[in-house]
Design a protein around this nucleic acid. Structure first.
Lengths: 337, 337
DNA sequence: TGTTAGCACTTGGGTATGTTGAGTGCTAAT
DNA sequence: ATTAGCACTCAACATACCCAAGTGCTAACA
């Protein structure tokens, strides 16, 4: 049998199954796709594909369904990333016009991506390691409680509360702010752990304790902004697209709520030379996602932060991949990647 | 028939149905609850209750289910808010120890509430109208792009980007910051719209344009912090608690995602003298929530911000109400309500 | 060697039919 | 006002059956 046709058959199965949600049989295949052979031949090919573990039959007399491995082969070797439709391009352009506050942009982006793909969209906050310190602010909330605010030149603002061991005054904070700012202004966020200790060391002994606490707070903020946060949208799509098909959505919602899980998932996805990375079914390290796939890619400076979608393994990979890639590119452009 | 017993029957029906998820019949009732009468009597009472629209039968030969109206009567006149178990109290205390950054606190609170109730928990950011301005900061991101940061003494930080019509310099921003801060520092956030215009008017003409834009930005931030945001947790509970029972979760997820909808829903809930307010099924103004109930209450200064949960109409109201109330009280105490 | 027609075989899903049991409403007696 | 008793209803379950879709295999064919 011919190797190319076998792939063609797999492609046909995947495509049909994805959009009909039903096991697809040999006869239906030859009807819908004009492969130039009979159903019997297809049956032979399908037997082969099944041997190789690329497709499976739910029961004896049903059609075949792609396995995780089948999808994998499909995205790796068969499918081509379809160009977006004009309407979709327009949607991207128009929806991303507007305020360029990072937070706003990400929110709109993720909403857009979820609409485009009909899946749950997730975006990680951009890494700010290469961002620089623009401003810091210490605000006395209570005698021993200081609000620390860190503003990066990317427009990102991080805040946190620090508890001091002793009472602090506004004057002390002003002084410390000047000291800190003097040595870390315009330096990269990820250099802070190296720079801050020396600043603390240079402080007059009376302030050293407070300075230490504040420095620690700043480091925490820089750390947090590294990769700690994400935005998501489109959870309702989970319910819709699975209305009469399993992918029990409980575990998926749990995963989504455990931001840590999602963030690790995204971070761990290797960067694929083709632009978008796909993780299918059991390939996912998290159990609850064994029936789900993640399609993600990097964006922004160095493609370090990730954006992507989460959906049932049975999804339209070519279009989804195209949408993710396009949105990520556009996002990079806006954020000056 | 005796009025008190009728209520007793309704209570029994609600309680049984809530925990068995199955229509409850007369026989089962007399067995589980020691009402001192026979099933026939109960049947008569049930017929009455049905006439009044408090319960309904899914089909002729099935037991009865409480209607929205039945639940309403139940929470209004029958149920008592149960005290929390010791374990629950402990959970509240221990989980809310920790950093007292507003954002952190709300996140932990909402997570706690969702675990306590097994429902989706939602909390509105505290109203800051009575909060005062602690600090403002203007940061030049690009020649015509200014990041405006507003820090309230409550510890809340709001940020946004303002576009200037003309190029601005750091010096100008410094000067304007001093001006603004001079007149609005320590004044209440909701007074800003009244104060700011006069500040702008007093600016030298060269700066007036920029000042106007910044003032507008500040107002927007104050506005936004009023009630625009919320945090939620426990969406996975939707899937779990409805594993084989409808309350089609799609529409509910949609509502949750439309923060605007949820915020209006919360805001519109009248304050109940008894502490918590309940909105049941079709009482909800939003269509997608016709099979859901909201249990909410105010917290913080003037109980102006809301916290609550969202779940199927068939829920354990007494316990849920108790949990919501307890958590809200505790939250008020922490935030200094 | 690859393809195809034909055929026997499997099996999930649909329909028709019975059976069961929980539950009801009503009536008559207490 | 309560209750025992009874006829009645109806969803849920079970059983049997048929049908269509689909398969694997074999034998013939190019």
């Amino acid at each position: 049998m011919s190797e190319p046709r076998k792939l063609e058959v797999l492609r046909a199965i995947v495509e049909d199954y994805v959009h009909s949600r039903e096991p697809v049989g040999s006869k239906a295949l030859v009807e819908r796709h004009h492969l130039g052979v009979s159903s019997a031949t297809i049956r032979n090919d399908m037997a082969l594909l099944e041997e190789e573990g690329l497709i499976a039959a739910p029961h004896t007399s049903a059609g075949r369904i792609p396995t995780d491995k089948g999808y994998r082969l499909f995205v790796d070797r068969i499918s081509e990333v379809k160009p977006l439709s004009a309407a979709e391009r327009r949607a991207i352009h128009s929806l991303l016009e507007g305020p360029d506050d990072v937070e706003d942009i990400l929110e709109r982006t993720v909403r857009l991506l979820s609409q485009l793909t009909n899946q749950v969209a997730v975006v990680q906050y951009p890494h700010l390691s290469r961002a620089r310190v623009r401003h810091i602010e210490f605000v006395l909330l209570a005698p021993r409680q200081v609000l620390v605010v860190l503003i990066a030149d990317s427009g990102k603002v991080e805040q946190g509360v620090v508890h001091a061991a002793t009472d602090a005054t506004d004057e002390e904070l002003m002084a410390l702010r000047a000291r800190f700012l003097g040595s870390i202004a315009s330096s990269q966020l990820d250099l802070m752990p190296q720079v801050l200790p020396s600043v603390v060391a240079l402080c007059p002994p009376a302030l050293r304790n407070l300075a230490g606490a504040l420095a620690h707070g700043l480091e925490r903020l820089a750390e947090r902004s590294r990769d700690e946060r994400m935005v998501m949208a489109g959870t309702a799509n989970l319910a819709r697209s699975n209305v009469d098909f399993p992918l029990s959505i409980g575990p998926v919602l749990e995963a989504l709520e455990e931001q840590v899980v999602m963030l690790r998932l995204l971070s761990d996805m290797a960067e694929d030379p083709r632009g978008v990375t796909v993780s299918i079914g059991r390939e996912n390290p998290y159990d609850g996602l064994s029936e789900a796939s993640v399609v993600a890619t990097g964006y922004g400076p160095g493609s370090s932060a990730k954006i992507g979608i989460l959906g049932p393994t049975r999804m339209d990979y070519p279009n989804t991949m195209a949408a993710v890639r396009a949105v990520a590119r556009y996002l990079s452009r806006i954020l000056g990647g």
